[in-house]
Design a protein around this nucleic acid. Sequence first.
DNA 1: GGACCTATTTATAATTG
DNA 2: TCAATTATAAATAGGTC
Lengths: 163, 163
Amino acid sequence: MSTRLIKGRKSVHLAKIENQNNRQVTFSKRRNGVFKKANELAVMTGAEVGIIVFPPERPPSPSSPGIDDKYVQMFRKANCMTLNTQLNTLKDQLYLSLNLKSKLKEKNKNLESQQEWFRGPIEKMNYTEASMLKEGLEDLLLKVKNYGTECGFGYENGKWKAE
Amino acid sequence: MSTRLIKGRKSVHLAKIENQNNRQVTFSKRRNGVFKKANELAVMTGAEVGIIVFPPERPPSPSSPGIDDKYVQMFRKANCMTLNTQLNTLKDQLYLSLNLKSKLKEKNKNLESQQEWFRGPIEKMNYTEASMLKEGLEDLLLKVKNYGTECGFGYENGKWKAE
DNA sequence: GGACCTATTTATAATTG
DNA sequence: TCAATTATAAATAGGTC
């Protein structure tokens, strides 16, 4: 009998959320959703997945650094916290996620539950896991960085000539 | 009255799919799902998101390269196809996805529909988009690569001392 | 900010063509 | 292999505390 407010979800358009508060809330929820989906993909299919998420820009503060510096600082901070402090306060700064099973097997054959370490914000990792993440990430990204200059393939007549 | 086979989805456990065929099908579907979710996150909240997905290993072929070489080759191939061939046959090799709006704004102020280019496998990009992706990715990854050696932060008494 | 709630939309497992 | 279908599980928008 009483009027009732509508709570269920509404359909959503693919467009930037203008309301600052809604945008932040949606970011938090969906970031977790993306990490979860990525982890499921990696675990269930054996794919190797790397994700980096930068949080949305916050409203400018009086003495905030420039945008390029900001990224560098975020990565620096991520590294320091990863290696030095058990990552307790990084939650809103940077999230990294990476699954490199083959690397893991080489580096640490006796680690159990390799499926689970990949997932989630890095503040939940311990030192060993974070170190391996860092190694794996650097290794992977080095390859990405070099892919342009080292290309020696040929593509002719609709076919690839590897080697 | 007739017997009917059940088609609807069943609940799923977080574990590797053993059946090769099911695994491949699930990979294709869920990879698209992850890219879609990541794009939604980026567009709706203004976050910047980078994703790399390596497909699951295929059954070993007689003369397949070693696992490390495989990655290098995949990146090489991705690059060659990105820059030289409009990316028509890359579908099962490598998918890259990246949203770097601030970079895009600098490099190409008159590009329309910046929200949409991020999404999807790179074989759907045109040359310009792929070039920008490459630049943005290299720039981003260079920063990631350097984050370890350039760290100059201090963490004391539960607080970060930036600068 | 986070944890929970509920109505709905969305993603997708299994199957068919 | 690839696109459609359908039943259902899962994600999530908006709300409350």
